[in-house]
Each structure stands twice: as structure tokens, then as C-alpha cells.
Design a protein around this nucleic acid. Structure first.
Lengths: 187, 187
DNA sequence: TGCATTTCTGGACATTTGTCCAGTAGAAGC
DNA sequence: GCTTCTACTGGACAAATGTCCAGAAATGCA
């Protein structure tokens, strides 16, 4: 659990509190194509990606539509399902072999109420999520697909290198065919 | 401050705590076209709309692009600016005369740390915001403009009645011209 | 009531994006 | 080394959406 120790250590947790936090997580391995969250089932965990590439997608008219991809060292949550405790409307699946530090909702709530400062950490996590999701939503309204692609080129260069273009296209809200056109036109 | 008393009373706050909460807000009146949050200035408050209609928009190539509208009895926040204490990238402006119960960030943080249960209230508010924003973002990727309009018809009928169509179109990510086509085609 | 302003609609045409598909290149397995 | 699979590209055409604009309808105000 070294990565978690470092992570929470770096943001100021120590001693017994740090141990309590890290012990609340369990490291689970996933093989390519394994589901972390499956459509129709309630998502009971959030987690921190230790390694691998994980994809959110929704089936629409029988087709996979990717709406987000998580890479190493980021937090993931099927928030709607996790928060409201309703069946997930999306799938969250491993695109490669990898592993995730998972924590259950009861454990999370326990840390929030029992560990001083964890409360602030969770609020910070939510606040950051909001900033990220909101910015992405606004971009979808305000920018053209090409502008969104150019923005991604500079803001998430590591995504571009790790993720097959078909998934990127889906995240940008266009077809792979059109992304190919965009990439061709900006040369 | 009746509306706030009722609101926080209904979710379980009482006595001195309730008074402390309500006293942290101030009711501010806005006239049509007044700015609540202005581009380039840091947003230092969040608030609960007492009355009126308020519009988030961004200027792009000299044009107003609405990305959200708040109606009565909803919470508003220029979250990115408020949370990260950076200049706002958007404007938030009164579309009609109205008033908002405002609370500053220091007061909010004070309530979170001093009033039992307010912490949970603020977390709940953030969680709900995430669910709403995330659902909206996913719709922008997965649904066509027509599907988004149909969804809005059933999920937010009150918006349809109060908001001029040009703003709705902008929220849906299409031009008024195209929204007119959509409305025509579903009859 | 009547004029001015704003909002909404829809025609004509341009641009963007999607669909379908075939071809190429590289990676993976036997 | 050969086959198979997957990712990526791009042509041809169709559908969706934008632009520009003018007229109709609704609203606000004197």
C-alpha cells in the first residue's frame, strides 16, 4: 500500500490516522475487460487507480460510448450511483490489466466522521471533481470538437499517448472518423 | 429570511444552530442585467435564489453563450472560481429582477466547522451538484440535441415556461435556429 | 392604444459531422 | 513466417447543424 501511504502522507496525515485511512482501502487487481462497475448494479466503492487504464462507457443503441477514461494516480467514482445508491447507468471497465485501491462507502463515511481532517480531504475531492466535470461540460457547450481536441493536446498530453484514438473520439463527443479528419486538418 | 428558516428547518437544523446558519446569509436584491459574478473577478459567495431568474454565460467571439440558468429555490455557485479562488471565466447575471441569499466563503467554512451537521449538509450539496453536472455532461456526449430537448421537456418543465428559447438553445448546445427546427419536427 | 423592442419562426444555402466502407499498417498469436 | 486482429485513415455520400436573414408574433412601455 506504499502508494496510498505516500499519497495521504503528502497531504498531511500521520501515525495512527494515516494507518487507519490506508487500512480502509483494499488493493484489487483487474484484468483487461474486467468490470469494476457494471450497468444495473449499484456502485458501492470509490477508488484510486494504482495502475492501468479504465474506461467509463454507456451502451447506446448497442454501441459503446466512452464518456471518460481514468489513468494511473487518479480517483474514480461512479458518482451518481455511489452517491444516490441507485443502479449504475454506466459501465466502468479495465482497458488494460491493472489495480485499484478501493474503499467502501461505509468505510469512507467512517473516516469522514472519525479522522480529523479527512472530512476536509473528502470535501476537497468533491470540490475538485466538480471543477473538472463542470469545466468539461462547459467545453462541450462552448467549444467545437476541434477546439476540444486542441485543448486536450495541451492539457492532457499523457491521455493522447496512452489511449487509443477511438476512445478519445468518444470522450470528445465525435466519431473516430471525424477525429481523424480533425487530426488531419490541423497538420 | 423566512425562506431560509423554512429550508434549513426542514432539513433538521434547530434553535441556536438554525439562527447561526440563517444569520450567516444576507439577502441581496438584483435588478435585471445586474451582475452577481463578473468575468475576471473572483467569486466569493455562493447563494440560494430567493426570487428571479439568473443566467450563467460566457462571451465567445463577442457572443453570449449561456451554459446554465438558475431559477427560484435553487443553489448557485460559480464553483470553479469560488472553490479555487481564481478569477471567474464566466458571468452570472440577473435575467429578471430578483434576490439571492448570499453567504461568503469564510462564513461557509465557519459553519462547516462549527455547526454540527452543516458539514454533512455541505457535502450533500456538493454531491448533488456533481450528480447534476455529471448527468448533464454525459447527456451532451451521448444524446442528440433533440433527445436533450425532449429530456428537458419532461425533467425541467418549469424551465421551459420561464426561460426564453434562445437561452434554452444555448444550454442545449445548439443555435436558436436549430432549436426551432427541433420543436417543429417533434410536433 | 400604438409604437418600439424583443422573441420566435422558417427559407436558402454553407459547413460540420455522421455513416458506411475499403484499404493499410502494425501488433499479437501460432 | 504466416495469419488474424485491431487501430487508424480517408473517399463518397447523407444527415445534422450553423449562418444569414426577413417576417410574424409577442411583449413592454409611453
Amino acid at each position: 500500500m506504499e502508494k496510498l501511504l505516500t499519497y495521504f502522507g503528502n497531504i498531511g496525515f500521520k501515525g495512527a490516522d494515516l494507518k487507519k485511512i490506508v487500512d480502509s482501502f483494499s488493493l484489487q487487481a483487474f484484468e483487461k475487460n474486467d468490470f469494476v462497475v457494471e450497468y444495473g448494479k449499484t456502485s458501492k466503492h470509490i477508488g484510486f487507480i494504482n495502475s492501468g487504464l479504465f474506461q467509463y462507457y454507456i451502451l447506446k443503441d448497442g454501441e459503446e460510448r466512452t464518456h471518460y477514461i481514468n489513468i494511473e494516480n487518479t480517483w474514480f467514482a461512479s458518482l451518481l450511483s455511489f452517491i444516490s445508491e441507485t443502479p449504475a447507468l454506466e459501465n466502468f471497465r479495465a482497458l488494460t490489466n491493472g489495480s485499484i485501491y478501493l474503499i467502501s462507502k461505509p468505510s469512507l463515511k467512517k473516516l469522514v466522521s472519525e479522522v480529523p481532517g479527512f472530512n476536509a480531504f473528502y470535501i476537497g475531492l468533491l470540490e475538485q471533481s466538480i471543477c473538472g466535470i463542470d469545466a468539461s461540460r462547459i467545453d462541450l457547450i462552448l467549444l467545437t470538437a476541434e477546439e476540444r481536441y486542441l485543448k486536450m493536446l495541451t492539457s492532457d498530453p499523457e491521455l493522447l499517448q496512452q489511449i487509443p484514438l477511438q476512445y478519445l473520439a468518444s470522450m470528445l463527443g465525435v466519431t473516430p472518423r471525424h477525429l481523424s479528419r480533425i487530426r488531419n486538418s490541423i497538420r
